[in-house]
Simulated scan of single mutants.
Amino acid sequence: MPSSHLPLDQLPIRRLTSEDVLACADLSENRGWAREEYKWGLLLTAGQGYGIDDPSGEGLVTACVVTSYGPGLAAIGMVLVSDRYARQGIGRRLMRHVIAEAGDTPLTLYATSNGQPLYEQLGFADVGHAEMLRGRFDFAEPAPDVAIRPATAEDLQAVLRLDNEIFGVDRTPMITRLPAFADHLRVAEEGGEITGFAAIWPNMDTHVIGPLIARDTATAQALVASLAAATDRPLRTDVDTRHTTLTTWLKANGLEQIATTAIMIRSLPDLPGDWRRRFAPLTVAAG
């Protein structure tokens, strides 16, 4: 039977590729999100996209991306359903498929208040919250005096070791893309030891700060200030709400809260790694 005549619960789910970037961006725009083609390009290259084609031939009915960090963790992001197919169970069907594909691998995601009830029904538990902040960084409140410099190729192995220790699973395939993906990548260093790193990457009219990994809040602040000085765009980032000193400082420097999300996980009691040194994700779509 042609897919145009199939009921919604029988439309084939397929794997997306980098050739689907524009279709994914169109779907984002359809739901009132920014197109974010640059981010979609990273996610569909570093991760695995899943989607259902609209039987009318008008793009995608639904889509999401799964970024795998090995058997210890995978992140689900960019879960979208076309407006004309909303509230018909198609998003739930895609999520069930993704969960089945993951097998025993624990899954994490950042959920909006609208999506959280569905994820709870699918076995995800709320383990924290993140605050999305946006604005022009105005340097009203100075950062602590911590040595920050641009990252070099020679720093990569040390950055990977630090990230593995703090994030809790190996995300080498994603972190090694940062030098090409980010406009600026900075490291904090003390006594020849790298104590933190952070990047900013372009997303529509903003620069997103992420990931932000640091041994303490002072180091995180210094990394943010260094990156802010390198751009004239507004900044955006998603900070774990437990990092109250950092969020207060960011707000004192011109950023404002625009949303909050729940950090959720399935098949583990909590996220691996050390949240005290994990300040912001590369993007909430990839954990």
Rank of each mutant, 00 (worst) to 15 (best):
M174K: 07
L235V: 01
G59Q: 12
I148A: 06
E190F: 09
G72D: 15
I194N: 11
W40V: 13
G77V: 06
P211D: 10
T17L: 13
A25Q: 00
E154L: 07
A130L: 14
N253R: 01
A125E: 10
G70Q: 10
H184F: 12
L235G: 00
R276V: 04
V98E: 07
L160H: 01
L185S: 09
G89S: 04
G51Y: 02
G41C: 10
A182T: 05
V224C: 01
L160W: 00
Q88L: 13
E154R: 15
P2K: 04
M174N: 09
S82C: 10
V98Q: 01
P142W: 15
M78S: 04
T152C: 13
G191D: 12
F167L: 11
H243W: 13
P281V: 11
T244I: 06
T176V: 12
G41Q: 15
F167N: 14
T241K: 15
T219S: 12
A262N: 15
A130P: 03
A143H: 08
R96A: 13
Y119N: 05
D240Q: 05
A130M: 13
R236S: 10
K39C: 11
D232G: 12
E131G: 06
A34W: 02
I265F: 04
V21H: 03
R266T: 09
L80D: 01
F137E: 01
D26G: 09
G91A: 07
V146F: 05
T260C: 13
W40A: 15
L282C: 02
L235Q: 00
L271Q: 09
E190R: 14
Q88Y: 00
I90N: 05
E131K: 10
V224N: 00
G287R: 11
T62W: 04
H184M: 07
P7C: 14
T260F: 01
L250F: 13
T62K: 02
G70Y: 04
L118F: 02
M1Y: 08
A230Y: 01
A102R: 06
Y38T: 14
L227S: 01
C64G: 02
G168N: 13
A229M: 09
R276F: 14
L43N: 02
L185H: 05
S113E: 03
L42F: 07
L133Y: 05
F279C: 06
V187C: 14
F167E: 11
I166M: 13
D240C: 02
T62H: 11
L8M: 08
T231W: 01
R87H: 11
A75Y: 00
I52N: 02
M132P: 05
I99A: 07
L227E: 01
S56T: 14
P106G: 07
T67Q: 07
A63W: 08
S4M: 04
A102Y: 08
V187N: 12
L133D: 01
D274P: 03
A100W: 11
T152Q: 08
F197E: 10
H184V: 06
G210A: 12
L60D: 06
L11D: 08
